[in-house]
Deep mutational scan, measured.
Amino acid sequence: NQASVVANQLIPINTALTLVMMRSEVVTPVGIPAEDIPRLVGMQVNRAVPLGTTLMPDMVKGYA
C-alpha cells in the first residue's frame, strides 16, 4: 500500500510546509504520495490542516 502525507501537527492556513510538519502513513482515502514530501517543502497550505489529517492535492497551493 502506498503511504500518503499526513499532518504531524496543526498546520495553520497559509503556512509554508517544513519536513517536521509532515509524516508518511498508509491511510484511506489516499492523499498526496509520501514520495512528494521533498517537493512539498516550502509550499503553502490554503486551509488549516488539523493534526493527523491526510494532505490532499487541493490543500496545497501550486501542488495540483
Score class of each variant (00 low, 15 high):
9 Q>H: 14
27 V>Y: 03
7 A>H: 00
9 Q>N: 11
34 A>L: 14
43 M>R: 09
5 V>G: 03
45 V>K: 00
21 M>N: 11
61 K>C: 02
31 G>D: 00
11 I>G: 00
21 M>H: 04
23 R>W: 05
37 I>R: 12
4 S>D: 01
5 V>N: 01
35 E>H: 12
9 Q>M: 14
14 N>I: 04
53 T>A: 11
4 S>W: 04
46 N>K: 07
4 S>L: 01
40 L>N: 01
39 R>G: 13
56 M>K: 09
29 P>I: 09
41 V>P: 05
36 D>E: 06
56 M>W: 11
18 T>V: 11
41 V>H: 05
3 A>G: 12
6 V>H: 03
19 L>S: 11
39 R>S: 12
36 D>M: 09
31 G>C: 01
1 N>R: 03
20 V>I: 11
10 L>M: 10
42 G>E: 05
36 D>Q: 08
21 M>S: 13
34 A>Q: 07
41 V>L: 09
7 A>S: 05
13 I>K: 06
52 G>N: 11
15 T>Q: 15
45 V>Q: 01
30 V>M: 14
4 S>V: 06
50 P>H: 04
47 R>V: 11
31 G>H: 03
51 L>Y: 10
42 G>F: 04
14 N>M: 04
64 A>T: 14
58 D>I: 13
3 A>Y: 06
30 V>G: 03
11 I>S: 01
19 L>Y: 12
33 P>W: 13
58 D>R: 04
56 M>E: 08
12 P>K: 06
28 T>C: 02
21 M>L: 06
52 G>M: 12
13 I>D: 08
8 N>W: 10
14 N>Y: 12
23 R>A: 12
14 N>A: 08
20 V>P: 13
33 P>E: 05
12 P>R: 04
31 G>R: 06
2 Q>V: 13
5 V>F: 01
39 R>A: 09
20 V>W: 14
3 A>D: 10
28 T>D: 08
54 T>D: 01
50 P>N: 10
38 P>F: 15
12 P>G: 09
40 L>H: 01
5 V>H: 00
37 I>A: 06
32 I>L: 03
49 V>N: 01
22 M>Q: 03
61 K>E: 07
34 A>Y: 14
38 P>M: 08
49 V>C: 02
55 L>W: 01
25 E>L: 10
59 M>D: 08
32 I>K: 00
16 A>P: 11
50 P>F: 12
23 R>T: 07
